[in-house]
Design a protein around this nucleic acid. Sequence first.
DNA 1: TAGATTTCCTATCGATTTACTAGGGAAGTG
DNA 2: CACTTCCCTAGTAAATCGATAGGAAATCTA
Lengths: 164, 164
Amino acid sequence: MRAGTAVMDNLAMRISARADYAVRAALELAAAGEDTSLKAEAIAEAQGIPHKFLEGILGDLRRGGLVISQRGGKGGYRLARPADSIPIADVIRVADGPLVSVRGVRPPDLSYVGPAESLLPLWIAVRANVRKILGEVTLAHVAAAKLPDDVLSLADDPEAWTNP
Amino acid sequence: MRAGTAVMDNLAMRISARADYAVRAALELAAAGEDTSLKAEAIAEAQGIPHKFLEGILGDLRRGGLVISQRGGKGGYRLARPADSIPIADVIRVADGPLVSVRGVRPPDLSYVGPAESLLPLWIAVRANVRKILGEVTLAHVAAAKLPDDVLSLADDPEAWTNP
DNA sequence: TAGATTTCCTATCGATTTACTAGGGAAGTG
DNA sequence: CACTTCCCTAGTAAATCGATAGGAAATCTA
């Protein structure tokens, strides 16, 4: 922990509010069905997300080609593709940039010297693993509460839920 | 990406400079051997880390029980335990707090509603996976450039090194 | 004991990022 | 036209990040 500060919430790897909100909004759209559109306000209320903030995030999802928007009275947002073809990784990347980085640099662009040389393959391995999970699990999986077996088995280990 | 900004380095999951520096410093100590002590300045120079910044990080490692320090002429820092008994995860946690969090909260403390309910087990699975890798790989592994086979095989996939 | 060395502690700093909020314009609907 | 809903730009308070400064405390050598 950083010296001198009492409560440290400074994290090695974190998922931002933006990414979390983006995924939850996309899940609401997935649950609604590919051709039902929902208003930003309705999503915001359902998920407890500040609605003006959510509007910005939905704009990112639209520019990223994940959702389609419609203005006016019967407007709203809907998924651009079937929910089972949209991995969680895509949503996070579109809302928040690259999945994993070290010091703001992506692993392949790092250079290490001396005994730290093997750090690079280690970060790469971590990244590959995160990518594998979040690239495999789709909106449809989560919305239907049916995660793939290999992911479920990871989450089933009781030790995975403990704190430290 | 966030609307309106040109270059986005805003990341879903990142390893901070602090965590990176902490691991690299610990690796220098591991390479030096358990009972050789190194001065902060020497580590800073070897790894290209701002030395006053590093001093603070080494203080965290000391308070976390990972290194032992000695002041004065022949002083410096050395590992408190053999390098093969210190996982990378420990170093990161001591320097930077919990490994993985969502919106600054640790996964078990989150609560989701509706179609987002299965997000929790998903984050838990991601965390379990990161923990598994970083808890398995020790300072000795990295310093000797001999990562465990399962980690190596992850990093060997050429696709793991690609950008997006 | 004096002097040199090196850790240890506190405080501060500028830049960036994060998580939001405000206000109004553009597009579509009845 | 009136109304709705998305769309866009700006701004902002607070936290965090990465780093620096200055000196007190401990330890060693001579």
